[in-house]
Amino acid sequence: MHKDIATPIRTKAILEKYGFSFKKSLGQNFLIDTNILRNIVDYAGLSKESGAIEIGPGIGALTEQLAKVSKKVVSFEIDQRLLPILEDTLSPYDNVKIIHQDVLKANVNEVAAEEFEGISDVMVVANLPYYVTTPIIMKLLEEGLPIRGIVVMLQKEVADRISAKPGTKEYGSLSIAIQYYTEAETVMIVPKTVFMPQPNVDSAVIRLTKREKPLVEVKDEAFFFTVTRASFAQRRKTIQNNLTSQLPKGKEKKEALLAALNRAGIDPGRRGETLSIEEFSRLSDELYADFHGE
């Protein structure tokens, strides 16, 4: 048996061997605790028939644990300096494919179709670079990938926003978007001490399980998200004020806006953070005819 990558000693040795220095701009924090990695993998519920998509493998600590339990791992790495390291650390595993690409620019659907042929169970499992957590998760959900769900490590503060309920200060358009596509739960809190270098904040692992169909039915998905984002533009403002200033021609169409709020049964004096996803779906459908495609 070869030693796990995710120990402080082995991680240091690998980094020294390659003279690797961390790039702050890429949000590189490597996990040095094998137990935590195994827990993350457990939460993904993978089997020898599963495929895993990973983003930002670093030196392969999580990749290795995924390779042990799944049929195939496909990993997106943006930092060219890590490619030779990964080739070395992951050499014992023949079921790993590293793709040198920015996942935000990649056609992930195409990659999945190519790499996971004959595999019907696919999960995204990753220790996400903190500075692009939200765009990555939203891309994976909006592009309708053939995945069962997502298990990712991210900043605890972002995890709190993702699983927030209406009426809390963490609740916002991100909470609604995630809830629309998935069921979200925070499964683990991770102290900053298990990373090298240590980040300034604690982390959390969230599990997002994709819904069979979105939680609410809306006339137009893109417009629904436009309305939710507009409603939180300035948290202290009422929903009426936010929509007036944020929607196209909102100022000219004050009457139509009030009428739509009225039809949706929503008091214009409420704040966006008090509205449930069902209320947002009613509201965006009522606004649709007057404000869509301006």
Score class of each variant (00 low, 15 high):
Ser231Pro: 08
Gln198Asp: 07
Glu170Pro: 01
Gln198Arg: 15
Pro214Phe: 09
Ala184Asn: 12
Leu90Ala: 01
Lys210Val: 13
Phe223Gln: 11
Leu215Tyr: 13
Lys71Phe: 09
Arg148Thr: 12
Glu143Asn: 13
Thr34Trp: 05
Gln240Pro: 00
Ala6Glu: 05
Val96Arg: 00
Ala204Ser: 14
Arg236Pro: 11
Asp202Gln: 11
Gly269Ala: 14
Val125Pro: 00
Val194Thr: 06
Ala233Asp: 14
Leu31Trp: 10
Leu174His: 00
Ile40Ala: 11
Glu49Lys: 15
Gly45Pro: 02
Pro57Thr: 10
Gln65Glu: 15
Gln246Ile: 00
Val201Asp: 03
Lys48Pro: 06
Lys72Leu: 13
Ser173Tyr: 13
Ala230Arg: 10
Thr228Pro: 04
Lys17Asn: 11
Pro84Val: 08
Lys105Gly: 01
Lys72Pro: 04
Gly144Met: 03
Val187Met: 12
Leu154Arg: 12
Ala52Asn: 11
Pro197Glu: 04
Glu157Ala: 11
Val132Phe: 01
Arg38Gly: 08
Asp285His: 07
Asp102Gly: 01
Leu275Glu: 05
Asp88Lys: 10
Pro8Val: 10
Glu185Gln: 13
Gln80Cys: 05
Ile99Arg: 00
Val108Met: 02
Phe232Arg: 02
Lys192Thr: 02
Ile162Val: 12
Leu208Pro: 02
Leu174Asn: 01
Glu252Asp: 15
Asp102Ile: 00
Asn127Ala: 12
Tyr288Pro: 02
Asn35Glu: 13
Gln80Phe: 09
Asn39Glu: 15
Leu140Trp: 01
Ala6Cys: 09
Thr34Pro: 09
Glu286Asp: 03
Arg235Pro: 04
Leu15Ser: 06
Ser21Leu: 15
Thr133Trp: 06
Val73Ala: 05
Arg282Phe: 07
Lys213Glu: 15
Val41Ile: 12
Ile32Gln: 14
Val194Leu: 06
Leu257Asp: 11
Leu283Pro: 04
Phe20Ser: 10
Thr133Tyr: 08
Asn242Phe: 09
Asn127Arg: 13
Phe22Met: 15
Leu243Gln: 07
Lys169Pro: 04
Val218Ser: 05
Leu140Ala: 08
Leu37Cys: 13
Ile136Thr: 00
Thr133Glu: 11
Leu128Pro: 08
Phe225Gly: 06
Tyr131Leu: 10
Glu87His: 10
Tyr171Ala: 01
Pro8Ile: 10
Lys17Cys: 07
Glu252Arg: 11
Ile9Ser: 13
Gly144Ser: 10
Tyr131Glu: 14
Gly56Lys: 02
Val69His: 08
Val125Cys: 03
Ile99Met: 00
Thr89Asn: 02
Leu243Met: 06
Gly51Arg: 02
Glu115Ala: 14
His2Trp: 14
Leu37Thr: 04
Lys139Cys: 00
Leu37Asp: 07
Ala184Tyr: 08
Glu221Thr: 09
Gly144Tyr: 02
Val69Met: 09
Val96His: 00
Thr63Pro: 06
Gly45Val: 04
Ala256Leu: 13
Glu286Gly: 02
Lys192Ala: 12
Glu64Ser: 14
Lys253Gln: 12
Lys71Asn: 12
Val74Gly: 00
Thr11His: 09
Ser120Arg: 12
Glu157Leu: 10
Tyr171Ser: 05
Leu62Ala: 12
Asp79Val: 01
Ile119Val: 15
Phe291Asn: 09
His292Glu: 07
Leu275Lys: 04
Glu252Phe: 08
Pro166His: 09
Val151His: 06
Gln155Cys: 10
Thr209Leu: 15
Glu114Gln: 14
Val151Ile: 11
Gly172Cys: 07
Leu141Gln: 07
